[in-house]
């Protein structure tokens, strides 16, 4: 095991998969000569050359569409969005083409591609740079949505995503890139669709994903100091999410709190809450609660942004309500 950052974990994942499979290439803005806007692709140009680490003009629609064509032809593109908020100018490509072409062709074509980059708020870059669009893409039937919280999972899941024959939308975080964690030295894959238990407890279940998992972890520790122990489940994959793992925990604790950075209306937590109430109604001792981003565009002001994002205070308040 070595201690590396989330950023380095992603870098290693791409490098290892590019080494393994010559059809894998990385394309996006500033991924090559600049070494990545957030340095996730550091060193890849030097190692793999300009043919496989491709700088683009600021043309998300064109280079996303180009990646679709390359995937239809059999290559395995990794498309980096400097920020997921910039992907919206390529929305047609992502929804109509990535989301439909395999199906509309009657299954003749595969789309083995990864779209990745940072999403979410917390760095005071305003509403247009702080979107958390996981749930929007999760609403498209053909898309797989992944959102790792820890370096080990970032590496293992990105490697699995690159090897998947299906399009994976991979959500990282500017606030996660510098986070350090132990990552195995040997080649490993983290399965898509499997959640991880970060912390065990019998009093309530907290389900979270991405950066919110770290906020939930802090809240769970605060709860523990007050004698209440939470089972904390980090989803890792948002769609398909690991219902069975959530269900096992809910059957034990009988209380469910969901923490997600999405806005409240139809965030992925709403789907989980629906599924759990539908299938585990008799196991619940209290209504399911969600702590989400507030229903506002992201404010620039730092104090306001901290209130808009899921935070420890709101999680604790919700937990107290659940445990009352």
């Amino acid at each position: 095991m070595a201690k590396i950052t989330y950023r380095q974990a992603l870098n290693q994942a791409m490098a290892e998969e590019m080494e393994r499979d010559p059809s894998v290439f990385l394309i996006g803005e500033e991924v090559a000569e600049y070494q990545g806007a957030f340095k996730v692709s550091q060193g890849l140009l030097q190692r793999f050359g300009a043919k496989r680490v491709v700088d683009t003009p600021i043309s998300e629609a064109a280079f996303s569409g180009l990646a679709v064509g390359a995937a239809l032809y059999g290559l395995r593109p990794i498309v980096e969005f400097m920020n997921w908020s910039f992907s919206f100018v390529a929305f047609d490509q992502l929804i109509n083409n990535v989301g439909s072409l395999r199906f509309m062709s009657g299954g003749q074509f595969d789309l083995p591609m990864v779209f990745r980059g940072p999403s979410g708020g917390g760095t005071q870059i305003g509403a247009t740079h702080s979107h958390c669009p996981e749930s929007w893409f999760a609403g498209v039937p053909a898309l797989t949505v992944v959102s790792p919280a820890f370096p080990e999972d970032a590496k293992g899941l990105l490697k699995s995503s690159i090897r998947s024959n299906n399009p994976v939308f991979f959500f990282e975080g500017e606030r996660l890139y510098g986070l350090e964690g132990e990552v195995p030295d040997a080649d490993f894959l983290t399965p898509i669709g499997e959640a991880k238990v970060c912390r065990e407890g019998d009093d309530l279940t907290i389900v979270s994903g991405g950066y919110s998992t770290h906020v939930a972890l802090s809240a769970a520790e605060a709860l523990s100091a007050n004698g209440k122990e939470a089972d904390l489940i980090d989803l890792r994959t948002i769609k398909p999410y690991d219902f069975d793992r959530v269900a096992r925990s809910v059957r034990k604790t009988n209380r469910l709190l969901i923490v997600e950075e999405n806005k409240p209306f139809a965030g992925w937590g709403a789907q989980i809450a629906y599924d759990v109430q539908h299938r585990l109604f008799d196991w619940l001792d209290a209504p399911i609660l969600r702590v989400t981003g507030l229903d506002l565009p992201q404010p620039y002001n730092g104090k306001l942004e901290a209130q808009v994002l899921p935070n420890v205070e709101r999680i604790l308040a919700a937990a107290r309500q659940l445990l009352a």
Partner: peptide, 12 residues
């Protein structure tokens, strides 16, 4: 929309 996809075929 397909013009960008076409460029990807040529790229490949």
């Amino acid at each position: 929309s397909h013009t960008a996809v076409a460029a990807g075929l040529a790229f490949a």
